[in-house]
Amino acid sequence: MNAASPASPLLEVRGLRMHFPVSEGLLGRKVGDVKAVDGIDFTVRRGETLGLVGESGCGKTTTGRCVLRLEKPTAGQIIFDGVDIASLGGKQLQALRQRIQVIFQDPYSSLNPRMTIGQIIAEPMFVHGIEPNATKRMERVHELLTICGLNAGFADRYPHEMSGGQRQRVGIARALAMNPEFIVCDEPVSALDVSIQAQVVNLLEDLREKFGLTYLFIAHDLSVVRHLCQRVAVMYLGHIVEMADSDTLFDNPQHPYTRALLAAVPVPDPDVEQGREFRPVKGEVPSPMNPPSGCVFHPRCPMAVDRCSKEAPQPREIAPGHMVACSEVKITG
């Protein structure tokens, strides 16, 4: 996969910031900001899957929620199919909601326990007036269940009667009901058993091909991300620190944080692991309310030099399509 291929972007995010005010005391006096997302740029081309990885609290979900416009960003542009949606409201936002859907991590809490599976999938079609005819709506529900690998008979069942993997398929069917172009997948397999994850990963791949979907795939399991994504962005404390096509990112990672992240993943093979010496990166992710000065990774970085605590490194393209935000990394191509 050539990262510089000219496929047109469906989504372009420019300078996205999402700061949440933090208040304290009875009067709710503002004491600071959580800089959940602090100025990020990325594009997702039509038909591709962009992976977004990083440790918890680094801003992945917040980025996804901004793209879904469940949050109004503090600053920046979110250009979807040529239109900046960062500050859209009202009717225009409603129309947009149909085209961008979401699949959540937790297949347990994201389905209403009092509704049947059929009602859960049909509801958004009704609300958005996609299929006003009730009989046709049910036909569509059965079709969607079948597409997602479930028996049409599941339409009459309730969420608690299904396994985690089956519920996640329902969540996917519900997202597909809107005929979306773009789906934000927020940790869609993390809550599933290892034995079920591969089923859902394959389903997501099949659907992308079949319906020409574009995904923003948020996950912390790097081996799943490598399998599913054409390009990957690594986030740390509200910043994208490295972004490249999947092969480059996994075979030739350049940012010290990406390297630390990859080194921390043990491989399911005792022979490989027994021979592998590694020192886990030290320390923990600092609070996004009080991010470190300069490069936000510097307190944990094994390569840090003096200036890292003073100057924030700017994202640079070190080779075509390979972006790294570290001042110590050399330009290679």
Binding site: S163, V194, S223, R226, F250, V267, P268, D269
Partner: peptide
């Protein structure tokens, strides 16, 4: 089946994952 189903970072990327079929 379990060992076959997990993608591995130390192996070339597979065309398709090979899941454990069925439900728990």
């Amino acid at each position: 089946a379990l060992l076959r189903s997990v993608p591995r970072l130390d192996r070339p990327r597979q065309a398709r994952l090979d899941p454990v079929e069925g439900q728990p």
